[in-house]
Nucleic acid binder design. Structure first.
Lengths: 248, 248
DNA sequence: CTGACGTTTCGGCGAGCACCGAAACGATCC
DNA sequence: GGATCGTTTCGGTGCTCGCCGAAACGTCAG
């Protein structure tokens, strides 16, 4: 059945040629931007959702400032980054949550396949314990929060995506997490996000972002300098034990 | 606050350098594989989950057989494709649903941003009407099925992920969709999948796959030759009208 | 065995691109 | 105004990698 295809169309345009006009080149454009190691390092450094300057991103990628500038121009042109100018600085951030999703999925892919060579522990101990994933918690902390909320049926994660129950809404309201305006947004409220260190789901989407924002505002968590890693403060430990019944 | 960073670490390893040891190079490896137009065309051609031979993929990418062979070796090495040998043919398919997810997310990214130049209609009329997305329905058909199931609360999609209700389970059982064994799998049962043509959610995950498989088995839908496009048969039109209350 | 076909390997060609340093530009601070 | 700093542009260098055609390998058919 396959011989027929090749015999019929030998050297002539066929159905597969038409597909060339399809998606391939478009995804290649974005993918090749991510595909350069220097640019990938920059993007990875921006995965926490913050905006960084060109110099900082150059250091992250270990390239000269001029090289970094060139890469950043391409990433902005390719709509993977957006830029805001402030004085003599220019701050770059991921253009959209969709970009973060692609990167996160790529990390899952990179983490796949067991026997592959992988130098030392790719992720540091503290990164595995608690970090931000674009704009929500990941690592053991993120998974623990997700487990806690799920076990009390404040959210339902099941095997399949996530939902916030009515009780969950009440809980969040009481916690001071503003979730109402997020429901209007097109962004999924409670997207499950596969954790590359824990290999389990944690809570992303608008809910994950709001909850995480609240934890920083309340002083329960703090960002480690120049890293996606997160530390839980003393107040945070108390709060998390009371709210989520977890010990850290 | 930033000047401090650069002054302190001028020319020396700093926190950002350490991040180089992090995820960047790993995601770059996969991304650069996808980033070549020829390889991207091959991957796009495999998005329907079928396995194709090296020659077919060469035609899809418009490259010589020898070139195609080289690309395919790299994709297999990079764990994006898996290969099964059969006689003098070798058939290639996507290595995992995770690969399909990355590609799908990249398509969403490529579809982002409005004013960008885009020749003609990127997707043909028939592709927009009904197609497969790796292993489940997408396009108007996929969205219509999702809407129907949601409106009758057989699944709950909300803004946020998806869940199958008890009534939904009963419905699927009656339909002859074998869903039980899929619950055991680690694959999400009802992952919402953003549709790049409709810009709305349709149903992916194990449920989407099982439902789609059932439709093909029942003869309600048929694959267009050499394409991801799908046609609905006469029997299918009747069935879909009865089951989902839709007219096509 | 012999010929046909799908696939892979090899050698060579050419283009694209990442990299850097030097210099220019613009904003800020003294 | 002048010095400093963050950022960008420009020119030049080197390497990688995609591409093809020719030839080799293995399988299948007669």
């Amino acid at each position: 059945m396959l011989a027929e295809t090749s015999a019929r169309d030998l050297g002539f345009p066929n159905a597969y040629d038409r597909r060339q006009m399809s998606d391939g080149p478009y995804i290649a454009e974005s993918a090749s931007l991510i595909g350069d190691p220097a640019r990938a390092n920059m993007l990875a450094a921006l995965m926490d959702g913050r905006a960084l300057s060109a110099t900082e991103l150059g250091l992250a990628a270990r390239v000269a400032p001029s090289t970094a500038s060139g890469h950043l121009s391409k990433l902005v042109d390719g709509r993977l980054l957006s830029v805001i100018s402030s004085g003599r600085h220019r701050y770059f951030k991921l253009a959209s949550p969709a970009v973060a999703r692609v990167l996160e999925e790529l990390m899952v892919l990179a983490g796949d396949g067991p026997p592959r060579y992988r130098p030392k522990s790719r992720c540091s101990e503290e990164m595995a314990r608690a970090r931000t994933c674009y704009d929500h918690f990941a690592g053991k902390l993120g998974v623990a929060i997700a487990d806690s909320l799920a076990s009390r049926e404040l959210v339902v994660l099941g095997d399949d995506g996530g939902l916030v129950t009515d009780a969950g809404m009440a809980f969040l309201l009481e916690l001071g997490v503003s979730i109402e305006e997020r429901k209007a947004s097109r962004r999924p409220l409670c997207r499950p996000c596969l954790d590359w260190s824990e290999r389990r789901w944690h809570i992303g989407g608008g809910l994950g972002a709001a909850l995480t924002l609240r934890c920083f505002e309340a002083g329960w968590t703090e960002r480690k300098r120049d890293s996606r890693a997160v530390t839980v403060t003393h107040a945070g430990k108390r709060a998390f034990e009371q709210l989520f019944g977890m010990r850290l």
